[in-house]
Amino acid sequence: METEEIIRAQKLIDKMNIGDKKCLKEIYGSEWDDISDPRNFGKLFKNALSENVLTKIKHLGIRSTGRCDEYIRI
């Protein structure tokens, strides 16, 4: 992820309530339409999370009711 993407992602994470469970599309809301390659962006987001570039969020796994990775605000 580029620096501006990291800053935007962290701001959106910070706006979430602790305990909220969301997929990336739900985290980004209307801004999700600005993502040109959602699949690749999802990989970059998950990598940034595993490298501790993004904080206050944890990957829960694939949601059972749909094909998206679910995250929880911690």
Rank of each mutant, 00 (worst) to 15 (best):
D34N: 14
P38I: 09
C23Y: 07
I18Y: 12
G42F: 04
E26H: 05
L24Q: 11
N47Q: 11
L49N: 02
E26W: 01
I35C: 07
Y28G: 04
N40C: 07
E51M: 11
D37A: 14
C23A: 11
E26L: 03
S36M: 15
G42V: 05
K46L: 06
R39P: 01
I18C: 12
C23S: 14
E51C: 06
K46W: 00
N40F: 12
I18T: 15
D20E: 12
F41E: 08
S36G: 09
G19A: 08
N17V: 05
D20P: 06
S36E: 13
F45E: 01
S30I: 12
L44A: 08
N17Y: 06
L49C: 05
N47C: 02
K21I: 03
L44C: 04
K25D: 09
F45R: 04
D33C: 13
K22M: 03
E26G: 06
D20R: 02
D33T: 15
F45D: 01
Y28W: 11
P38R: 13
L24C: 06
G42L: 02
E26V: 03
N17D: 08
S30H: 12
W32R: 01
K43P: 00
L44V: 02
D20A: 10
N17S: 10
S30T: 13
E31Q: 12
S50W: 05
L44K: 13
